[in-house]
Design a protein around this nucleic acid. Sequence first.
DNA 1: ATTACAATGTTATAATATAACAATAAAAGA
DNA 2: TCTTTTATTGTTATATTATAACATTGTAAT
Lengths: 131, 131
Amino acid sequence: MAQKKKYLSKNQKIVLDIIEKSAQPMKAYSILFNVQKKGLKAPPQVYRALDKLVEIGKIHKIESRNAFIACRNSACTITNATAFSICESCEDVKEISSSKLSKYLSNFQDKEGMKFNKYNLEFFGLCKKCK
Amino acid sequence: MAQKKKYLSKNQKIVLDIIEKSAQPMKAYSILFNVQKKGLKAPPQVYRALDKLVEIGKIHKIESRNAFIACRNSACTITNATAFSICESCEDVKEISSSKLSKYLSNFQDKEGMKFNKYNLEFFGLCKKCK
DNA sequence: ATTACAATGTTATAATATAACAATAAAAGA
DNA sequence: TCTTTTATTGTTATATTATAACATTGTAAT
Ligand SMILES: [Zn+2]
Ligand SMILES: [Zn+2]
Ligand SMILES: [Zn+2]
Ligand SMILES: [Zn+2]
């Protein structure tokens, strides 16, 4: 299982480090710009690290923004089940960790009775500051 | 309000038409290719129509796939609240219309008590056929 | 040591999306 | 009507996001 991976490679560490230092999601080419001083010069080096970090749950992709955010929710590194709130004004993004929500969604069945253990939910609105 | 719009423009009709004829989500450049015989020659013509159609709820964007699907759920043309199931094997996508789910998510509050009336939820798994 | 697999470095290119501007068409107000 | 405003169109160019392909190097197990 991908989640069992213990050690990150050099490039994976560099990329994770910069994403973790950012309070907000970072775009791939912004990451690239920021890691060029550390020797990662080309897009594939960044995208490969991003792919792996997403795979092992260290970061998540905010699909509606094409951006990447560090995971702050230990539970979801195992589940592939993610939820975020996104402010449409200041673009502030927060990961939602609600066991009630994740239970509800993991147990949700569609009309054919199908269940899904993997999902991504993005909520949109205005954050406190912007309201 | 955008939802009150009654008539679509020529390009909007052309683009909607082709998306509605497709059982599955279509990518923008695939749409472009398909409408070139009808005179839409450049990406902005397609993207403008897509933007408007998304805005008025006639189509939805599947964010994780960068693709567009026609809305089959009259309720969500008003709500900006969408949910889909996506088969990770055959890429079959279905819009989920569950008033229970939409009520649950519209009433969901985050830790600061914030509510969101707009959201997008993408479930992933294997469809009946692929399981 | 040999073998397998993961990660790296590199160049080029594919795929997705928007900026900018001139021209037309449609809708609304006088 | 006519005139003003707004939405839509056509067009060229370019920005942004992401992957293909291939040679090389590092790592870990046998
Ligand atoms: Zn997480
Ligand atoms: Zn905000
Ligand atoms: Zn819909
Ligand atoms: Zn399937």
